[in-house]
Nucleic acid binder design. Structure first.
Lengths: 144, 144
DNA sequence: AATCATGTAACTTTACGAGTATCGTGAATA
DNA sequence: TATTCACGATACTCGTAAAGTTACATGATT
């Protein structure tokens, strides 16, 4: 499987939506991401369930930001898109009978747990608003 | 796909081999892991190329440890089995034209890089010999 | 009533570790 | 020298989950 890119895709979308007046249609978002509208609806359903965006049907409908960008972190988005599997590597049996395997699992599992904790901490420390600021900073730096 | 378990499987095998006199056949190792001999040969080929084990054909042949267990870390084994893909999540385009996407990729990429660095540090800090000691310690603790 | 947009179901595609079958090659033994 | 044993290598299939696609239903606006 290719990398699960739902987190970065949704961040990409949310930042564009924040700088866009009015709702964006799934079709427009799909074009932006280089994919199709069904996939957009499927992934963004998680953000809607979490209350981060709203969706409206019919004329003038589409997707709208429905939260304070200062209060939503990258970790929140990761969880909203249902992305629990962080690592591509891991142990074979989670509950082995072999004592050697238990020791191995413990050593590898500890390292993975620490790495995951750090990742969660990092993602939880950045809000969508901060990402937006980083974008503004980059733009003004480029213009000079 | 299930998790890539080549690292923990190989650690499991290496620790058993360290406590075993004489070569172990692929068949015996496969039975230990609950898999088959071809998969064992395929995965252990990486360890052989790295010089950590030796393989011999014919009567009395099989796999033998060919390194100092104090000088080989879990990270070395991870690399020897060709396991470069650590994360199941990541960015979609590594080199996007969109400035928003660039900012997102940087933020997510930084967090992933930090987590990977910590994992590499942890895996690199433990030798196979230390794992063996942990096993001995667990055994004597159980016997009391 | 027509149009626009989301919601949902039911697929196919893709990537890759894992698993399997088969045959070749070389070493030890009888 | 012939047999057996064990690895080496090739060429597949399988399982899984994200991604992609097709088709149709539902609801809101005009």
């Amino acid at each position: 499987m290719r990398n699960d890119s739902r987190l970065s895709r949704m961040l990409h979308v949310l930042l564009h939506m924040a700088r866009h007046d009015g709702p964006m249609t799934s079709e427009a978002i799909a074009a932006m991401l280089g994919t199709n509208a069904v996939l957009v609806r499927r992934t963004m359903a998680g953000l809607r369930d979490a209350g981060y965006v709203r969706s409206d049907k019919g004329h003038g409908g589409g997707w709208t930001i429905a939260c304070d960008l200062h209060r939503v972190t990258l970790l929140d988005v990761h969880r909203a898109v249902g992305g629990p599997r962080i690592f591509a590597i891991g142990n074979e049996n989670s509950n082995p009978g072999c004592a050697v395997e238990q020791v191995v699992n413990e050593a590898v599992g500890d390292a993975l747990r620490d790495a995951e904790a750090l990742l969660v901490e990092r993602l939880g420390a950045v809000s969508l608003a901060q990402l937006g600021c980083a974008f503004e900073a980059r733009c003004s730096a480029t213009l000079q």
